[in-house]
Simulated scan of single mutants.
Amino acid sequence: MTSNHPLKRLYDIFIAPMDRWLLLSILIIYIMSLFLLYSADGGQFFQLEKKTLHTFLGFMLLWGLSRIKPQMLASLALPAYIGGVILLLGVEFFGVSVNGAKRWLDIGPLRIQPSEIMKIGLPMMVAAYFQRYDTELRWYHYLGALGIIGLPVGLILDQPDLGTAVLIGASGIFVMFFAGLSWRVVFVTIVLAVLSMPLMWEYGMHEYQRVRVRTLFNPAADPLGAGYHIIQSMIAIGSGGVWGKGWLNGTQTHLDYIPESTTDFIFAVYAEEFGLIGNILLVAVYVFIVVRGLIISANSRTLYERTVAGAFTMTVFCYAFVNIGMVSGILPVVGVPLPLVSYGGTATLSVMIMLGMLMSIHSNQTRGNQSKY
């Protein structure tokens, strides 16, 4: 195919800037999620249509970001961080309460969850901060990074949203790790965190959070209350067996036993209908995305690119791991969606932005390699 062929020109415009392996993985999950969401929503098209719109916008962002140089994206770190903090403060004073939690903000006709913005803004800001001191990093710079992390995390904890706060805080810690944080410090921090758990339990957790932890170890203590979610999701996963019951044939799903079946607990729907084999395939795609992201991080040419790529990759991994873990009954129930699968516009777009920035970093690597010849 010649360079002037129309198909070749279309490929160069729309596909070449993006990492083909990441793009293929995203397409696999997206196509699977359409079938899954249609089943989870009882054969209705409303959420499916909105999911399609969210994903179309996500792919537009993916393509657009892949064509922008990482240096230009880095200049957006401070505005994204400050904007996210301002929106979180807006939630404090003008937020919308749903089920006792004030996590959303109405801006005109839109309802957004500012904590989703901090998934992107926080690691970008911490990475830009470290890039500024690239050649002269000292121990006190890591303390400064903790301050950058602590402000939005504290605001999210006050909503209250412990699960999201921990995961967003972890994204900042990942940046610190990829910036060269000593393994000794990591080990000591983990030990101190474990030792402080009794104090955290007594003074740092709301009662509903304690209930979730107790329910994890004994969901049968309140089968129609706090334990209902875990019990029903584990029944669905177990009844799927090895091969699953087949698409649209999940009894737990279509008899409405699975709560939040299109959002937080959509993996239970998937496991019931596609079984263990389907679970393995989905996890394999997530693992492939993580491995590919870490390869991009390892091949990065600047500290900012390496830390952002590594943090975004590990953030996607953490959200997938936590969601699958809570639905399977090995982690407490928290409001964490399954990346690229669960229904939700803000969550979908935030993940697509992360992957788009990964592609931008990869594209910059490719241009750099080509310029050597």
Results as ranks from 00 to 15, higher is better:
45 F>V: 11
45 F>D: 03
46 F>C: 01
48 L>R: 04
49 E>I: 11
50 K>G: 01
50 K>R: 15
52 T>H: 02
52 T>W: 00
53 L>Q: 11
54 H>F: 15
54 H>Y: 15
55 T>L: 12
55 T>C: 12
55 T>W: 13
55 T>S: 15
55 T>Q: 12
56 F>G: 11
56 F>S: 12
57 L>N: 07
58 G>L: 04
58 G>K: 04
58 G>Q: 05
59 F>G: 00
60 M>F: 15
60 M>N: 06
61 L>V: 07
61 L>M: 14
63 W>N: 10
64 G>Y: 01
65 L>F: 14
65 L>Y: 08
66 S>D: 13
66 S>I: 04
67 R>P: 01
69 K>P: 03
69 K>Q: 14
69 K>N: 15
71 Q>M: 12
71 Q>I: 13
72 M>N: 12
74 A>R: 15
75 S>V: 07
77 A>N: 02
77 A>D: 04
78 L>C: 10
78 L>T: 13
79 P>M: 08
80 A>T: 09
80 A>C: 12
80 A>S: 14
81 Y>I: 08
81 Y>P: 05
82 I>D: 02
83 G>D: 08
83 G>Q: 06
85 V>C: 12
85 V>P: 00
85 V>R: 00
85 V>T: 09
86 I>H: 02
86 I>S: 06
86 I>M: 11
88 L>M: 08
88 L>R: 04
88 L>T: 05
88 L>N: 02
89 L>I: 14
89 L>F: 11
89 L>H: 03
